[in-house]
């Protein structure tokens, strides 16, 4: 499943989508950035409620397929601009982390 495919589900919407063809192979969940950095795999969809600018560096360096901001968490405009510049897909959802993970489990 690609990131664009995920957006066909009405619960998920695009915040930034510079690379919608990126394939999601697995899912990682976490808010402690160093933990995520060490454990998330390349091509994971990373579900978090953390929304500061450092999530972009973590997603970029760990090479995740996208960041999914759960629980209705939002990011400010400067983070969106940086994400597009760094080619990082950010998806948002009002679902809880658990609910988002359950849906992803059925799609990948």
């Amino acid at each position: 499943m690609t990131v664009s495919d995920l957006l066909k589900n009405e619960n998920f919407s695009s915040v930034t989508l510079p690379d919608g063809d990126r394939v999601i192979k697995d899912v990682y969940i976490g808010d402690l950035l160093s933990w995520v950095m060490g454990r998330a795999k390349s091509d994971d969809a990373w579900i978090t409620i953390m929304s500061n600018v450092n999530i972009l560096a973590v997603a970029s360096l760990a090479d995740t397929a996208c960041i999914i901001l759960a629980e209705g968490v939002t990011v400010d405009e400067s983070i969106k601009a940086t994400a597009i510049d760094k080619e990082i897909n950010i998806i948002s959802t009002n679902l809880s982390i658990y609910e988002a993970a359950v849906i992803l489990n059925g799609m990948i």
């Binding site: 402690l32 950035l33 160093s34 060490g38 953390m50 999530i55």
Partner: peptide, 16 residues
């Protein structure tokens, strides 16, 4: 509160 300080920095550096 920024998501750091989990005590994983040096262990991650060693691991990778």
């Amino acid at each position: 509160s920024l998501g750091f300080g989990a005590g994983m920095g040096l262990p991650n550096m060693k691991r990778y």
